[in-house]
Design a protein around this nucleic acid. Structure first.
Lengths: 196, 196
DNA sequence: GTCTATATGAAGATAGAC
DNA sequence: GTCTATCTTCATATAGAC
């Protein structure tokens, strides 16, 4: 669990953000999760941090750049999880590690999970942005555990949907992170491990 | 399976739509699924059926009314599934019937499923629209099978997320309805029945 | 039921001062 | 880094003719 925990930290690699930019990213993340990307105007973001639209434009050239920045934060977390899983030796173990990391990630950052899987803009982004697509392919490959048929596809789809969807489900909104995490880990073990 | 199959038909109860309205609803459903509700303009809907915006406004007083109409179609399907399940005598059997009906519904109407669970506007709608909330409560109650604790909550969240999320997952996009349905039914049985 | 034309407002974006 | 002011574009919505 150590590698995924460490990797979950939003790493600043190629792109480091200035404090003013980071404030915008943080505010955008919350608003995107609440209203969706499309329904979040620059005005709303500006209001949330108490500046004007023009000030936001001084930090990011366009709304797309803000979406990109938010997506990169999300991407970093997933990438770390996938890399931790790929470092394992057996396919079965890689799958377990990945599922655990996905649960950690999803619980710890519910807002991001919500955006990542639900927002039409983000979903389109996942299809069109090359680095993002690569990560999702690696993630799916691990979940499918070497197979490529319909059964493996549906199984992998169910697993990621179950995890990502459960953490943002209204039914668990009031559960604290610890309770949610342990229940999910437990259920995931029962549901999905025997299938391998 | 007969009751759920029969019930899945979009029933026209209190609100019957004129043909011109129905064309709008059908077009809107497709566009909402593709672009999200917010990113779908009345112009796009009008273009899709080959009329002008004004003609659309003649059928629905506002965009909200169109969203409402689309939501009602979605709601009708879910309601039928819930009612079929509630007609069962044992809780375990009700849960099985509901899960099967959810899979049928989800596979048969993937577009709707996508909108229902992913769109921020629809999600808000589910929270605020009383009839919709009631249905979701009944559905969740059946899935939780009498319990109310964290474990039951997470389990129910996982089940509905797994089904609804799997049918719209990119991994299964190319599978035909029959393959997807049978795989899902099979996996759902393996994963979720023993837990009850 | 559908059209043309138009009002109104909000969103993304830029220019230039402080 | 932030402001005021302004531009353009597009979306919702209405009026009134055919």
């Amino acid at each position: 669990m150590c590698p995924s925990e460490a990797g979950v930290e939003p790493r600043r690699g190629p792109t480091a953000y200035r404090p003013a930019q980071q404030r915008i990213i943080d505010a955008a993340l919350v608003l995107f999760a609440e209203h969706g990307v499309n329904a979040t105007s620059l005005q709303m973001i500006a209001d949330a941090i108490g500046v004007t639209k023009a000030a936001v434009y001084h930090q990011f050239r366009s709304k797309d750049q803000i979406v990109l920045a938010v997506a990169e934060v999300v991407l970093a977390g997933l990438e770390a999880a996938v890399e931790a899983a790929e470092a394992e030796e057996s396919r079965a173990r890689a799958r377990e590690v990945l599922i655990s990391a996905m649960i950690e990630l999803g619980v710890e950052r519910r807002l991001m999970t919500r955006i990542l899987q639900r927002d039409p803009v983000m979903l389109r982004f996942q299809n069109e942005h090359e680095p993002f697509r690569k990560i999702m392919e690696r993630l799916n490959r691990i979940l499918m555990g070497g197979s490529k048929g319909p059964e493996a596809r549906v199984r992998a789809a169910m697993i990621s949907a179950a995890i990502a969807g459960a953490v943002v489900h209204p039914l668990v909104e009031e559960l604290d992170d610890e309770a949610l995490r342990s229940q999910l880990l437990d259920l995931a073990r029962k549901c999905f491990r025997p299938l391998q």
